[in-house]
Simulated scan of single mutants.
Amino acid sequence: MSKYVIETRNLTKQYGAQKSVARLNIHVQKGRIYGLLGRNGAGKTTTMKMLLGLTQPTSGEVAIWGKPLAANEKKLLPRIGSLIESPGFYPNLTATENLRIFATLRGVPNRNAIKNALDLVGLPYKDRKLFSQYSLGMKQRLAIALAIMHDPELLILDEPINGLDPIGIAEVRSFIRNLCNERGKTILISSHILSEIALLADDIGIIDHGTLLEEESLEELETKSSKHIRFTVSDTAQAARILERSFHENQFTIQDDHNMRLHNLNISIGKIVTAFVENGLEVSQAATSEESLEDYFKRVTGGEGIA
């Protein structure tokens, strides 16, 4: 049995000559929140639609709970809740009335399902307020209530905080986190808002122009973008040998022939520079630096940033 709730293998979607998603391999673990992060148009929505069978991949595979989605849709899809585009709620009906219609259409059997879903997202049951009178945050919460009404094991949410004000964002973030922590749901969430994904996700996949650039835990990502000493030298391979030989140090990252980062801040920069120069290296830069997550994403996506 696969340890991943979602696993894609070289998932590709091509429209004519353009690849919207190219050979994507993502791995979503049970009971965790996976943030799919990328600019608008990066391929996030197309990926989610393929995971839900709403659009067919040009090539590659989707596996859900270790089983291929193709030919198993009737068994797998009822265990998934999703929010891809805003549902067509009736403006002149209440939240309860809207959910009752969807429950009937979808054959949701549990009489308490509507009340439970509304309770979970913090909306009143049998309230007289009409959907047209709801704030954006309340509308988004109702959309998520619809996604969880049948108590799915897996949630796939496309940009659930898009267009919300700071209070609405905090509310949605809070109960998405609770769904994972208290209800044990596995959640795949997409966003182009870096700061929100950083507050919410356990694992992150960075997608850009349809290609997955990185996939790792948020902890690993923060380590990569944490405080470090940046060196620009004439030969990083030789600099690495000096660090290992003279300082018994291996906590460094070589970026290219001339740039490297040392993650151990306890060694004197002056002593390292002296050792480099004494061994014939030219040192043009040596400074402590802290790269923000935003800076890191700009770097891995080619300098454009996320939003």
Rank of each mutant, 00 (worst) to 15 (best):
G53L: 00
L118R: 00
S217G: 13
P124N: 01
N98V: 08
W65G: 10
N112R: 15
E153K: 15
E294D: 08
I161W: 02
I176M: 06
L77T: 06
L243I: 02
V108N: 10
V273M: 01
V277G: 02
E7S: 15
K126S: 11
N116M: 12
T94F: 02
V273H: 01
L243C: 05
S135E: 00
R241V: 05
V108E: 13
S135I: 03
G270T: 14
P68A: 05
E196K: 08
K271P: 06
V5I: 15
R245L: 12
N250V: 12
F89S: 01
L130D: 08
N178W: 07
Q251P: 08
I229M: 09
E171D: 07
N92T: 09
K298I: 09
N162Q: 04
E222N: 12
G210K: 04
Y134M: 14
L83I: 02
V28T: 14
R299Q: 14
S2A: 13
Q14L: 05
T236D: 11
K185Y: 11
T186P: 04
N162E: 04
L265V: 10
R230I: 02
S268D: 06
S246W: 03
D257P: 04
E249V: 00
A239N: 06
A63R: 07
G16C: 05
K139L: 11
I167Q: 06
N266W: 01
K298C: 14
G31M: 09
R230P: 00
R100A: 14
P152Q: 14
L83P: 00
L123T: 00
N10R: 06
A240C: 09
L76H: 09
P160Y: 02
H228R: 15
Y90H: 07
L199S: 13
A70N: 14
Q255N: 12
L157A: 07
K75M: 15
L52M: 00
I156S: 03
E278H: 13
L54T: 02
S20V: 15
F252D: 03
A95V: 01
I84P: 01
I6R: 14
E294P: 01
K224W: 04
Y134E: 10
I156H: 05
K19F: 09
P109E: 12
S132A: 08
S226F: 07
K227I: 13
K19P: 00
S226N: 13
A287E: 06
A239C: 06
A198H: 05
G41F: 11
G122W: 01
D203G: 08
N72I: 03
W65T: 12
I80S: 01
Q238F: 12
G107K: 10
L142Y: 09
A147P: 02
P87K: 10
D151S: 12
I33A: 05
G107Q: 08
Y4Q: 08
N40L: 11
R141P: 04
I6A: 14
H263D: 08
N259P: 02
I267H: 12
G270K: 13
E153L: 15
L51N: 00
I189L: 08
K75S: 15
E291T: 09
V233R: 04
R299N: 11
F89C: 02
I167D: 03
L136A: 08
G41A: 06
I156D: 02
